[in-house]
């Protein structure tokens, strides 16, 4: 029988994919099969809702090289839907498999459901300017970004686990891998964020934002320029179209103008507050509350007021 397949090389993301997969299972009445490269993830996936977990084994490690093997697995029983975690590796693999399947693929799907035997997905277009709905004939593939869904709650059922030998693409040689995540901070898990932009004149001035973060118990985040151009904060803290997407309770934007490419990463925050000295800055259109003023004056006052 055809199944609903999920795959991610990232453990947390793989678990999150089970949530939409289980919803699709309700509509399609098909088993959820989780493919994984990590033996260690198998138990978790089996206990969170996968009816079957297949661990793909190979001497090779290159995730993208497993694309052919993923396709082979799917082809055994057939898939109506394949959900792949939207890491960059995942996107590469998903597109490859989709081509082999002759299937459509929605990139960075934010929502999915079945309607009249087709998959309906929602995604963002034009660098955040628009939102669109796509209709995909089955089999269909979708990539899903981290933290779009929460992982399901275990209900006591445990799926089966099996291993399968995987043929990996050996044409590509991996010569060197250098880790770039520096501190292991995960700002997407933060409940509240203070985001800084280029309104801050120098790196030391970020202390004003840090102090505010301390009293609010908020993490620090930033715009692309602050991370990639100025290198004042690590890239993990950069929020935007090619950075992190966050949905905190409070997003406090200080000294940042609020361009679409940044806002697309934070616009689902529950509450957005802005501090900027330019009342024409687009951030004020996107804010629930805001202060037009000099951040060098406002921040210390705000920190003091909230600290009481």
């Amino acid at each position: 029988m055809a199944g609903i397949y999920v795959f991610s090389e990232d453990s947390a993301l793989a678990s999150q994919l089970l949530t939409p997969a289980l919803e699709l299972k309700q509509s399609l009445a098909q088993p959820v099969v989780a493919l994984t490269l990590n033996e260690a993830d198998a138990k978790q996936l089996a206990s969170l809702g996968a009816d079957k977990v297949v661990v793909l084994e190979s001497s090779g490690k290159w995730v993208e090289g497993f694309a052919e093997a993923v396709f082979a697995q799917i082809s055994i029983a057939g898939a109506s839907v394949l959900l792949v975690g939207a890491t960059l590796r995942g996107k590469h693999l998903a597109a490859f498999v989709a081509a082999k399947l002759g299937a459509g693929l929605t990139t960075d799907a934010k929502a999915l459901r079945v309607e009249d035997g087709k998959l309906v997905t929602t995604r963002v277009l034009y660098a955040g300017l628009a939102v669109c709905e796509e209709l995909l004939a089955l089999p269909a593939v979708a990539t899903i970004r981290p933290r779009t869904f929460l992982p399901p709650v275990a209900d006591g059922n445990v799926g089966t686990i099996e291993t399968a030998a995987a043929e990996i693409d050996t044409r590509v040689t991996v010569e060197e891998v250098t880790s770039t995540s520096s501190e292991g901070i995960d700002i997407s898990a933060a409940n509240m964020l203070v985001a800084v932009g280029r309104g801050f004149r120098k790196k030391d001035d970020l202390k004003l934002a840090e102090d505010l973060g301390t009293v609010l118990k908020a993490e620090l985040a930033c715009t692309r320029g602050v991370a990639e151009d100025d290198h004042w904060l690590p890239i993990e803290r950069y929020i935007g179209i090619s950075g992190q997407t966050v949905k905190p309770e409070l997003y406090l934007a200080v000294g940042l103008s609020g361009q679409v490419q940044h806002m697309v990463g934070c616009r689902e925050s529950k509450l957005i507050v802005a501090i900027n000295n330019d009342e024409r800055a687009p951030i004020f259109e996107a804010a629930d509350y805001g202060i037009v003023g000099d951040l060098y004056e406002v921040l210390p006052l705000l920190t003091a007021a909230l600290g009481k």
Binding site: G104, L105, V120, V124, L129, A130, C132, E134, A287
Partner: peptide, 15 residues
């Protein structure tokens, strides 16, 4: 295989 059904501008509705 993926057909666009509707495209809407994203508009922020904030206070």
């Amino acid at each position: 295989k993926a057909v666009r059904r509707s495209v809407k501008g994203f508009v922020m509705q904030r206070k």
